[in-house]
């Protein structure tokens, strides 16, 4: 039977190694930057760290699981949804949290920070749902 509802396209399992390699490089870069072995501008270092971290987390999120099937795809969709709701909620309540703790209503949360926390939240929810189902 030709599947009318196309499955979520995912990256091959080998990308998991690429992702962890990139994550390791990011950690190495942070260590080298903080110990001043690399003489890069602080803002540039921060941007490189965030970009590589985001890329490695995204690759990991898009990579196939060992036993990828329809049940896992359903779990993934639930985790994506939860992560999206978490991101929007965080963006809404962040100014309020700032007001309570810093006395300023303006949010200083960067898009990168939000995306990293959303991806981390996705991994947590995905693993929890996978373990429970």
């Amino acid at each position: 039977m030709k599947n009318a509802q196309h499955d979520l396209k995912r990256l091959p399992r080998s990308f998991r190694k690429v992702s962890f390699g990139l994550l390791l490089l990011t950690v190495l870069f942070v260590v080298l930057s903080t110990t001043h072995t690399l003489s890069l501008d602080k803002e540039i270092s921060k941007q490189i760290t965030i970009s590589t971290l985001l890329l490695s987390l995204l690759l990991l999120a898009l990579t196939k699981d060992k036993a990828e099937d329809e049940r896992l795809q359903k779990i993934r969709l639930k985790a994506y949804t939860a992560s999206f709701i978490y991101g929007v909620t965080l963006a809404i309540i962040n100014p309020l949290l700032n007001l309570v703790f810093d006395g300023s209503f303006l949010s200083d949360m960067e898009v990168n920070q939000l995306l990293i926390t959303m991806l981390l939240f996705y991994f947590i929810v995905f693993q929890l749902l996978k373990a429970r189902s």
């Binding site: 036993a67 099937d69 329809e70 049940r71 896992l72 359903k74 189902s133």
Partner: peptide, 15 residues
């Protein structure tokens, strides 16, 4: 063509 966990989930009415 699915995982063993999927069969287990179906049998236990979780999926």
């Amino acid at each position: 063509g699915v995982s063993r966990q999927t069969i287990n989930s179906i049998e236990k009415n979780r999926y």
